[in-house]
Design a binder for these strands. Structure first.
Lengths: 196, 196
DNA sequence: ATAAATATTTTGACCGGTCAGTATAATTTT
DNA sequence: AAAATTATACTGACCGGTCAAAATATTTAT
C-alpha cells in the first residue's frame, strides 16, 4: 500500500536524522541510514532516488517540525507580548533539544547554494517564520503594545535576530549561555518592535 | 627561508579559497588545491599536516580579513552613527563580494561543532566583532546618540542581527534583496541601540 | 480454501570511481 | 654534494549506486 511505503520513508528519514545527530551530516552514508533503520543497504535507494533525496526529505521534515512547534506555542497565549515570549521560549526550548535541531539546520543552510531543492524548502520555512512574526507584530500594533513603521520588515528582522542569536549560541560552545541568549534575543526584539 | 615557506602556504590558502568559491567547500580536493596553486599534488601535504589543516588556515585568513575590512571601514569616520553606517556598508559591500566570503564562512560555521580548531578561530572572530560593536556603542552612548542599558549585550546582539540578516540574504537567493537587507539591518540596529 | 502465479519488497555482494595520504624519484637550491 | 623542495605513481579505504536473486505479500485460478 501507499501508506506502507510512506511509513517506510518516514522510518528512513528518522534514521537519517539520528545518524546525522550522532555522526554529523556530512559523515552519514547510505549504509548508516540503513543501519539506523535496521534494514539492508539497498532499501534507502529503493524508496528514494538517491542519498540527496533522503536528506531533502529530512530537511523538509525538520523545518516543518520546527515551524509547527513554534506555531503551536504562539497559539496558546493571547496578547502579542505573550506570544512573543512563548515564541522565544519555544525557539530556546532547551540546550539539548535545540542543539541537535539547529546544528542540522545549519548543515542544510550551508548546502542551500548547491541544491535548488534545499533552497525551495528553506524559502517555505522562512515564509512560515515570517507569518508568525507578522501575526504577532500586527496584533501588537493593533493593541498598542508595539510601534513599527513596516510590519513586513519587522517580521523579517525578528527572524534574522532569532537566527543570528541561535547561530552564535550554537557556535560559541561556551557553557550556560543559552538562557542569556534567550533573554538577550527577547530584549532585542522588544526594541525592534518598539515595545515600551 | 621561513619567509619562503610562509609565502607558499599563503599561495596554497589562496588556491583553496578560489577552489572553494568555484566548486564549493565540500567538493574541494587536495588535487584541486594543487591545481589552483599550479603545483603538484604532493605540495599541500608538504606544507600542511593534512587537508583539514589547510582549511583551518583558510578559515583563519578569511575571518581575519573580514574583521580587518570592517575595522578599517569603521575607523574612517568619526561619530558613532557614522561608524555604524560605515560598518554596515562594509558588511553589505556588494552582492558579489559578500556572497563568496559569507558562503564560505557559513560552510565553516556548519563544521565548527566537529572541529575544535575551527571553534577557536571563530571565537576569536566573534571577539573581534564584539569589540567593534562595543566601541561604537560606547561612543554612541557617550555622545548621547545611543541609549542602551548593557553595552556588552548590545554589541553581541548587533552581531547577531548582522549574521542573521546576512544568513537570510545568502539563503534566499532572490535578486535585489541585498540593498533592502542592508537598510533593514541598519534600521533594526538603530532600534537596538536606542537611536533617536 | 488451497495452490499457483504474480507483484512487491528486501538483501547483500559487487562495481566503478574518488580521494587522502604515502613513498619515492626527480629537480632545484644552498 | 647535501638538503630542501616538487613531481609522479601508487595504495588502501571508502562510498554511492546497481542488480540479480531471495523472501514476502498479494492476487488469481482451480
Amino acid at each position: 500500500m501507499a501508506g506502507k511505503a510512506e511509513e517506510r520513508k518516514q522510518q528512513l528519514i528518522k534514521a537519517a536524522f539520528e545518524a546525522a545527530t550522532d555522526k554529523g551530516y556530512e559523515h552519514v552514508t547510505l549504509q548508516d541510514i540503513a543501519d539506523y533503520a535496521e534494514v539492508s543497504k539497498g532499501v534507502p535507494n529503493y524508496y528514494f532516488k538517491n542519498k540527496g533525496d533522503v536528506f531533502a526529505h529530512l530537511f523538509e521534515w525538520l523545518t516543518e517540525r520546527i515551524f509547527e512547534n513554534e506555531s503551536a506555542a504562539v497559539d496558546q497565549v493571547e496578547t502579542a507580548p505573550e506570544k512573543l515570549q512563548a515564541y522565544l521560549d519555544q525557539v530556546f526550548i532547551s540546550p539539548e533539544e535545540n542543539r541537535t535541531f539547529y546544528q542540522l539546520y545549519l548543515d542544510f543552510l550551508a548546502r542551500i547554494k548547491q541544491d535548488p531543492a534545499y533552497q525551495k524548502i528553506n524559502a517555505a520555512f522562512y515564509e512560515h517564520c515570517f507569518s508568525i512574526g507578522r501575526m504577532i507584530v500586527e496584533q501588537g500594533v493593533r493593541d498598542g503594545d508595539f510601534h513599527v513603521h513596516d510590519v513586513e520588515q519587522t517580521a523579517v528582522m525578528i527572524r534574522a535576530m532569532i537566527d543570528g542569536t541561535l547561530l552564535q549560541w550554537l557556535t560559541r560552545q561556551e557553557e550556560d549561555l543559552h538562557g542569556w541568549y534567550r533573554t538577550s534575543c527577547h530584549q532585542g526584539i522588544l526594541r525592534l518592535v518598539g515595545a515600551q
